[in-house]
Nucleic acid binder design. Structure first.
Lengths: 239, 239
DNA sequence: AAAATAGTGTCTATAAGACATTATGTC
DNA sequence: GACATAATGTCTTATAGACACTATTTT
């Protein structure tokens, strides 16, 4: 049946038959802060686009899974140890997207609660491309290096979409939160106001939340019941 | 401000500082044939997994965009000149997914009308990894090479999801079709029967179809009105 | 006229959206 | 008691789903 002598033998495969592109990961880390959605950018310290702002990212190591590379680069360049949520977004591979060489970038988006979004330190590890790291509101961005504007755009669309049919919102809040805080997260990301009664009715009917015995008391007014998500993975609504 | 001598100079970037992975594209081409959803597989003619069935695919060339590579590999290995729809799915990059070397695969899914799914010839180009190509019903698959089972699984989920909130179905039908044909496509992919009156009511209310002046007459019964999609890109419903 | 598929409407149940008042805490 | 936010329900409208008969063509 097989006439090919190479069956089960690696000898016929030459890994250098094709010149190889470089592969990077880039991460759009998003968080709600002060009533606005923010994205984490690094200031590039090296050519190309030195001095411009860019998404954190870098080369995938030869024996490193893609998700691991995304975690590592995010940590090295921004000090974020572990985002609450990380999902692969899309792979950007236009031939001329990087002046250095052919670079294919596997883009990710990461989510963090606003309360955890203070950068552990603003001193990226030596040896990375980053000079510093900083949160920017997504409506007031500096010009971005490479095609990072397009990557960020796609991350925002994906987040907005997923918010409406999954429970990813858990990754943008503390473990325990009030329904008002939850609503505010939705409003920040969807960019519009929501009706309080309808929002609560809907959220509670999904049965993804559970009330805790605790309350949040703050200011001269009635305290609010604290809730938590039953699960810390995104649940898909409906179908 | 800049202490780095490399500003605006490519000299400091060494493209060989990191060993590079290989990058491939793999394509899950799907079509409805004889009341079942089928996927196009190739029989591998070379190590590794020689003799096993796999998704068509291959190495991305160093000066080739990812989408172009997907089109090219699909054509070389299966003779399909142009799928009606092609979308990037996900990038699979587990370290050990290919025994040859580190291979990162950018997976795509492609859609074709059943009527265009006869393979132009079953003789893949020389120099590809394919010995032959063949359609398989997705419920009766042979064991698949590499992680292609997982890729196909994701393609099926994506197609099912997109069918319900976009008009991608256009890519699975001829230019002109009857509402019964449209319904059958939905039934094949969703894997369940749909109510005829509700289906037609819903489809017509979306205003993505237009009636043609033509009818399809076939067999001893009333002829059916032919319709077409107003646009040949997927329209998103609602939102 | 028999056979075969095309084409059509109503009623019910559920979900979404608009909308205002009372409750409970702090100071 | 003044203030500030929490908490709650009804009515209306739109959408989804169950369900059966008539229309038109060929042979």
């Amino acid at each position: 049946m097989n006439t090919n002598r190479s069956e089960d033998s690696p000898t016929s495969y030459n890994p250098d038959a094709f010149p190889r592109p470089s592969v990077t990961v880039d991460i759009a880390a998003l968080t709600p802060r002060r009533e606005k959605l923010h994205v984490l950018l690094i200031e590039r310290g090296v050519w190309p686009h030195e001095g411009m702002w860019a998404l954190p990212g870098g080369f995938v190591r030869i024996e490193e899974n893609l998700d691991d590379a995304a975690h590592r680069e995010l940590c090295e360049e921004t000090g974020i140890l572990k985002p609450r949520y990380l999902e692969q977004l899309y792979t950007f591979g236009t031939v001329d997207r990087d002046p250095r060489t052919r670079v294919i970038s596997v883009a990710y988006f990461a989510l963090l609660p606003g309360s955890e979004s203070d950068l552990p330190n603003n001193q990226p590890h030596a040896g990375t491309d980053a000079r510093s790291a900083q949160w920017f509101p997504v409506e007031a961005l500096p010009p971005l290096a490479f095609d990072h504007g397009a990557i960020l755009q796609m991350a925002l669309e994906r987040l907005r979409a997923k918010l409406s049919y999954t429970s990813v919102a858990y990754a943008l809040l503390n473990e325990e939160f009030t329904l008002t805080e939850l609503q505010t997260v939705y409003e920040i990301i969807l960019g519009r106001e929501l009706d309080k009664r309808n929002f609560r009715k809907k959220m509670l009917s999904l049965e993804i939340l559970e009330a805790t015995p605790r309350q949040k008391r703050e200011g001269a007014h009635r305290p609010a019941q604290l809730f938590r998500f039953k699960q810390h993975e995104p649940i898909f609504f409906d179908g």
